[in-house]
Nucleic acid binder design. Structure first.
Lengths: 342, 342
DNA sequence: CCGCGCATCCAAAGCGGTTTGGGTGTGCGC
DNA sequence: GCGCACACCCAAACCGCTTTGGATGCGCGG
């Protein structure tokens, strides 16, 4: 079932059929109706490869799974983010092309992807403070939006980010306000921009409260439950253990809670905990009205939807200066925080 | 940079350049070398859309995010599975096309996807016991492999599955062997084939041990930590609470542990727990030598790699009868199981 | 009656590759 | 010296769609 066969069975030229189906003028009302009816009847669907070759638009967006995920953990945030972005794409008729970057020459991989014509734009995730991919993509002329930011990148580029620094400063301030002075931070992997910003927010709020940041209370690691557990166990064993924890993910928080309870202590009374909550669908923070943890929350799925919309509009209006969008995390008061014990 | 311009700059015809680059005969050694060198120098990469149009192969595999994930949870298994499959695809030069199925007419969505020519094959996830998609895809002639099985599907089709029934029967038998007689099952969502098989394994092993399965001890729900916690709390409150738990995911197990410890009991002594472990990278069962839970384990990422390989070979050899592969879960002895208290 | 504008429709030229079906030139056997 | 096999190369058709630049026929004003 091609455009040509459809045209023949209608006694029309491919040109007219194409124009009729794509809503162009220059086609009689009656003819258009007849074409549409026949197309539906025959179950005709244009071949996207051919269309894409002719129009130059791929009707697809690239997302990239970083190469080193082969060895490291697959970021659990990706799935929800992509699901959110996918909703927006689907509504606009776009597909997602997921490429696993081959190890080694990352730059060459992105270059090939851009040249390939398989995608009209790229969504970049998990940026580092000095992320070379941004300059690379800008140079390639492929529209892109970054989920997160690259703090050390000077040139303008499109991004959508949660205000990590402010969220973690706020959480820290909340804890100092409750009298805590030894506030541990169990952060995500070092080298990730979001982790850098969270650490900065934490440090700033401590300094602000007249507390000297203690490097022994700050950890950077891939965000697993086990990490939260072991780190909290170790910290609890210190001569001066922290009275409060700040965690970068709910999984870490769950681990901390385990360690805390195993030590016979209770969260919210003996030890306080504020976590960031990405709103992952399979890892809810309790139920809507009854959170388990005090948290800063920014649903990553919603951010996926937003970032995708930004990218689509960047593709639709080339030449426009890149847009940026900073999302404020919501504050969720839960039972895991309380006044510092003395 | 097209094939034509490259050919011109080499003083050759597009035909010869194409043959030289694609490793065909009929090209002099020296010419081939010259072409390859120039292609590399100029950074030439063939346009996949054009190539795909000409060859009829898309060099892409479809994965589908179910429509209802818009409202329900995004299966955390998807990410690791896709990462595994992606490795295999990437090595063979294939991309992943992720489509979000529009709500409503699922069949039409798959039909369009098949007709579109965007993909050479499809990987189906999360099948139901009577899954219509299988007959549909078989009828469409699009190669596909199912991750999991559709138990009520009679016609042959390609699948890769973990032996859910056997794994859960084994786990149950292990518990009855320890003297447990009230063994709760906190399963995944009802309607999923894997959940059905796990429930069957559990029930069979109970019957085998002369224990009448108690419907009050079996739950079906999306697999979250919170589900594990609340279910375990409720069950603990029964007049005759279970002395052992079987959980379908590590997240559920973590929730159960929380409820158990909150009740002042200890896992492995007062209450036993065996969980299934999908080997998700961000949710490890302790560390390699020191598991947290006794578990049946089958790394889903590895299964992604395998399923992708099966699909690629199904695409390469059309007409071959579909292959199937049953993976045996490994048994991991952890500290969460012990003799039944009396 | 002529010429012009308008509404429709179409032929043909791409898009950037692959592939079929010859061409050309050389070396070799007879 | 002729014919043939062989190695090498190329022109052109094709994949299925979009889009440019006309063609055609009609009604209408001058």
């Amino acid at each position: 079932m091609t455009l040509r066969t459809l045209a023949e069975s209608l006694g029309l030229s491919p040109t007219t059929v194409s124009r009729a189906l794509n809503g162009y003028g220059d086609v009689a009302q009656e003819t258009r109706a007849r074409v549409q009816a026949e197309a539906r009847a025959q179950g005709y669907a244009p071949n996207p490869r051919a269309r894409s070759l002719a129009t130059g638009r791929a009707m697809a967006i690239g997302h990239v799974i970083p190469a080193d995920s082969r060895h490291e953990i697959v970021n659990p945030v990706f799935a929800d983010f992509i699901a959110g972005a996918g909703e927006t794409y689907a509504a606009a008729g776009y597909e997602i092309v997921l490429s696993v970057m081959p190890e080694g020459d990352e730059a060459e991989g992105y270059r090939r992807l851009a040249r390939s014509g398989r995608i009209d734009g790229l969504l970049l995730q998990a940026p580092r403070p000095a992320d070379r991919r941004i300059a690379l993509l800008a140079g390639l002329g492929l529209p892109f939006v970054v989920h997160g930011r690259a703090s050390e990148e000077a040139a303008p580029y499109g991004w959508l980010d949660m205000d990590n620094r402010r969220a973690f400063a706020r959480a820290t301030r909340h804890l100092t306000g409750l009298g805590h002075r030894r506030i541990a931070l169990l952060n995500g992997p070092e080298g990730m921009d979001f982790a850098t910003r969270r650490a900065a927010g934490h440090a700033a709020a401590l300094t602000e409260a007249g507390i000297a940041p203690d490097p022994a209370l700050v950890r950077h690691e891939p965000m697993t439950e086990f990490y939260g557990y072991t780190a909290a166990r170790e910290l609890t064993g210190l001569a001066a253990p922290p009275t409060a924890y700040l965690t970068s993910s709910l999984l870490i928080a769950v681990g901390v809670r385990r360690a805390v309870e195993e030590a016979g202590l209770r969260l919210g009374r003996d030890v306080s905990l504020v976590t960031h909550d990405d709103g992952l669908s399979y890892l809810p923070n309790g139920t809507p009205g009854r959170p388990l943890f005090t948290a800063t929350q920014a649903p990553v799925r919603e951010m996926g939807r937003e970032a995708a919309a930004m990218l689509l509009s960047a593709i639709a209006e080339p030449g426009r200066p890149p847009r940026t969008r900073l999302i404020e995390a919501e504050w969720v008061e839960g039972p895991s925080t309380g006044a510092a014990p003395r």
